[in-house]
Design a protein around this nucleic acid. Structure first.
Lengths: 342, 342
DNA sequence: CTGTTAGCGCTTTCAT
DNA sequence: ATGAAAGCGCTAACAG
């Protein structure tokens, strides 16, 4: 008996082989209780013999359920991307859901397109839009398709959202630097159109003013990239008076730190540095990087949880945004005095 | 005129509004040439007014084309995962394809399930199976569904594949260490059921024998994890006679290196270290890690390219596996003498 | 418990 | 150029 082609038979073939109607075949295959054990057996073994694999596309069309979640992400940096997907995937996997992925490279038109392309293929949408113009995004969300937005505050948009408390995180970072004895602080900023970055910068400014009485603390431009970190290091060396740096993300913090050290500036003795994100790399650099840790995978998992709720009860109100408070992780790059916490 | 719900109207609604048949609506919407400019115009503006978004699920069922590629990956470590997805995504995006993602967590049953769950939703499959039992995988590939296998050699399986030349890469790494003056080599191995890891170990052993006359070079156990790297460092310190380490991946190499340095062992002066993969982190550690670089994103992109070929011409033979030769990247962690190359 | 009959939303012959 | 109708593979009333 030669092996039979896989995933080639339809439910009609199975029904025919089992000598029942397609309806009964369907019921047996889906474990409905209204089938005689005998027929179920016949159907199941026919399916097995024919190597039947259900056509999920057809099923979704008929049930109006795809068991698939659409994930729309911007171009993310390495670790962040994989971690968030990992979180979503784990949660999705537990529930037997599949993930339809769509990176939005750049402009708004493409984003709109990406979202529209999900129509009829997903039960809900998980979108992440750190860019400031989350409105474009929301304006394109198909009506009636549950969605939760990650990383952007969308007041009154009617969609659930889950955001990182960047402001509080920045404040905590500054607080820590000050506790370490730093008095001349600088911030390496993120992209100007990035909501997270702006909040971090705002938190930095306010904390510097409140804690140090510094009305115009130094803010170096940046864009979350390695190069920006190196450039910042250059600027810091040129000035020579800064003793504490809070970077808007880890990548820039690390690049800056490495560059500083290679330029002969002692970290943390001369300059203490703290980042934001806690990418896995942070623990591998020397000195290990202090940072405001976000459990990125948790962000994804929680977003999916909220999405499931929204799917299960579409009528429920969106509710307040979930806040994710970053955690201060004190490591060597900012540790000057005794023990300093963490 | 209030804004209308998005993605709620069907093609029938559009047809009705434009006062044409659904057939004409479909033709107009899809840019067929056999429609009068006048009716096309009517259909298009009706669609616009109704905020019509085509139901892609229904379309696939009818055209037997989903414009979606299924991606089945094992649980991967951070950078590797995001890079490979990035490569695939870029290539897919260029062609207007979507990605249906499915991680296979662990066992074979789940893998089979994951693959079956793709039936009727994808035009082709991209699977990666570093585990030694790629057969299970292939045995479950739906007949007639084009597939490309990444990272495993599947002789005669009838599927195209693209593999990393691990053996040659390992050999090159050893060659480099020897050129740097190392004479007592050790290898930190990867998981015993991982095909890539096994090839790297084989390459190491053969090169050590050929280049150094070392019949039984030290091979430390490992599993690609950070912890394994730390453990290896312990073992190396205990012995004290090893002066060159080739690790099966970067993560272990870095963990080992950091641990060695913290334990007072000078790298590369006392022990030269080289890894495999070139994860982005490699350039951030101090000293920067030498490694055998794989353009991971390229791996994904090339796999997708081959998949497209297979989809466009299902009759074409699978052909030989594509080989991807890793590139020797000499950085500080293994540089002892003069310039040393790279 | 089982079979018959409609669809799900779209594309595509086949006539006209 | 356009419309009517069949059908992609499956599920879900509705009868029996």
């Amino acid at each position: 008996m030669r092996p039979v082609a896989i995933g080639t038979a339809t439910i009609r073939d199975v029904a025919r082989a089992a000598e029942v109607s397609v309806a009964s075949a369907s019921r047996a295959l889906n474990g409905h209780h209204s089938v005689t054990p005998a027929t179920r057996e016949r159907v199941l073994s026919a399916a097995q013999a024919l190597n039947y694999v259900p056509h999920l596309g057809a099923r979704s069309l008929s049930t109006r359920r795809s068991n698939t979640i659409g994930v729309v992400l911007p171009d993310l940096f390495g670790e962040f991307f994989s971690e968030i997907i990992r979180g979503i995937d784990r949660a999705a996997h537990r529930r037997g859901l599949q993930l339809l992925l769509s990176n939005m490279h750049g402009n708004a038109d493409e984003t709109a397109l990406a979202i529209r392309a999900m129509r009829g293929r997903v039960d809900g949408l998980l979108v992440m839009s750190p860019e400031i113009d989350a409105d474009v995004l929301v304006a394109n969300l198909p009506t009636g398709l549950p969605a939760v937005v990650m990383g952007a505050r969308l007041d009154g948009a009617g969609h659930a959202s889950i955001v990182i408390d960047n402001h509080a995180g920045a404040w905590a970072a500054v607080e820590h630097l000050v506790a370490q004895g730093c008095t001349r602080l600088a911030h390496i900023a993120g992209p100007a159109d990035n909501a997270d970055a702006l909040e971090r910068a705002r938190g930095f400014r306010e904390a510097a003013r409140a804690l140090l009485g510094d009305e115009t603390p130094l803010v170096l431009p940046g864009d979350f990239s390695e190069e920006a970190g190196v450039a910042a290091a250059g600027a810091l060396r040129a000035r020579g008076d800064i003793d504490g740096v809070f970077s808007a993300n880890d990548i820039m913090a690390i690049a800056c730190m490495v560059s500083l050290i290679e330029g002969g500036v002692a970290v943390p003795e001369k300059v203490a540095i703290i980042g934001f994100d806690d990418v896995p790399i942070a623990r591998f650099v020397t000195p290990r990087l202090s940072t405001m840790g976000i459990r990125i995978a948790d962000l994804g998992a929680r977003a999916l949880d909220r999405l499931i709720e929204a799917i299960d009860d579409p009528a429920a109100p969106a509710g307040e945004p979930d806040h994710l408070m970053p955690e201060l992780l004190v490591r060597a790059s900012s540790l000057r005095a005794g023990d300093g916490g963490g």
